[in-house]
Computed example of a mutant assay.
Amino acid sequence: MEIVENATLVVVDVQQGFEEVEYWGRRNNPEAHRNIAALIDVWQAGGRPVVFVRHASTRSDSPLRVGHTGNAFKEYVEERRGKGAGPELFLTKSVNSAFYGTPDLDAWLRESGVRQIVVAGIQTNMCAETTARMGGNLGYEVFFALDATYTFDQVGPWGWTLRAEELSRATAVTLHGGGFASVVRTGELVAAATE
């Protein structure tokens, strides 16, 4: 794997509201935060661009709604913002894809000549996956850091329930099998970015 000099890390929705267990339920991957922090640190130390995405839910009961404490970034992300040697973008969105946020992510990446992105964050099968899919559709080379994401058990139609681990595997298979992204681990990205 080759990580180019201006490969951009897109950190999706790493917000305090995801700690509200009574709202979200059971989650997977307890190592996700350590892995997200490691990616941010390596990207910032190498002078590569980092995009911090925040979800501003329009739902009045959402822990991610504007004005609620859960809308803020988790502390380890907030303390890293503005600390990198490379370019940084902060954008807000109210839908699943970071490409439909403000400011315009696609325009910012293209103006900077970026063709390669790495996606990490919350939730694996929601905003992280949607951002990766759209990035692939827009022609970016996308790396999806599966172990730097997590999600929650979810109930679907007809009472079908999938555990968070199953949803994560489904995301990995869909992104890989559909040609949207290369699904990788944090360690691989760190090694490639520090070569």
Rank of each mutant, 00 (worst) to 15 (best):
T151R: 05
K83Q: 15
T174S: 15
V118R: 05
L146R: 06
S182N: 12
L162I: 00
R110H: 08
L105C: 07
V118Q: 04
A72Q: 15
A148Q: 03
Q123M: 09
G84S: 03
F180Q: 04
K83A: 14
G139V: 09
N96A: 13
R81S: 09
A132W: 02
G113K: 08
H68P: 07
H68W: 15
T102E: 14
K74Y: 06
V114Y: 08
H68L: 14
L109M: 14
D153H: 09
G70W: 00
D153P: 04
E141L: 10
F143I: 07
N137A: 10
K83Y: 04
A181Y: 06
A132Q: 01
S94C: 13
K83I: 08
E141S: 11
S97C: 08
T171P: 02
A98Q: 03
E78Y: 07
F152I: 06
E75P: 09
S94E: 13
V173P: 01
M134T: 10
P87H: 06
H176A: 15
V173F: 12
G101I: 10
G135T: 13
V114H: 12
F73A: 07
Q116P: 08
A72I: 01
E78I: 01
L109V: 13
L146G: 00
V142R: 01
E166I: 02
K74G: 04
N96F: 11
A181L: 10
A85D: 13
A145Y: 01
S182M: 10
G139K: 07
Y76G: 00
M126P: 03
A148L: 02
V155F: 02
P103R: 08
V114M: 07
L175A: 12
R65W: 08
R65M: 13
G139Q: 08
E79M: 11
Y150A: 07
S112K: 15
S94T: 15
E141V: 11
G67R: 02
M134N: 04
R115L: 06
V66P: 02
E78K: 08
I122C: 04
V66F: 07
E165F: 03
L146Q: 11
S97W: 05
R110L: 12
Y100K: 09
G139W: 07
V66K: 06
S168P: 00
F90L: 14
T124M: 02
D104R: 04
G135R: 11
A172S: 12
R115T: 15
G179F: 07
E141D: 14
V173S: 14
G82I: 07
G179Y: 08
V119Q: 11
L109H: 13
R163Q: 13
G67N: 03
N137D: 15
E88N: 10
T161I: 11
A132V: 00
F152V: 04
V155H: 14
K74C: 14
A128W: 03
Y76D: 05
E129W: 03
E129T: 07
V114I: 14
N96M: 10
F180G: 04
G67C: 03
G178R: 06
P87G: 09
F90E: 14
M126C: 10
D153I: 02
D147H: 06
R163Y: 05
I122H: 01
A132N: 01
S94D: 12
T69L: 13
A72S: 15
A170C: 07
T149K: 05
A128S: 14
E75A: 13
G159F: 09
L105E: 11
L175M: 09
A172R: 04
K93W: 11
L91H: 03
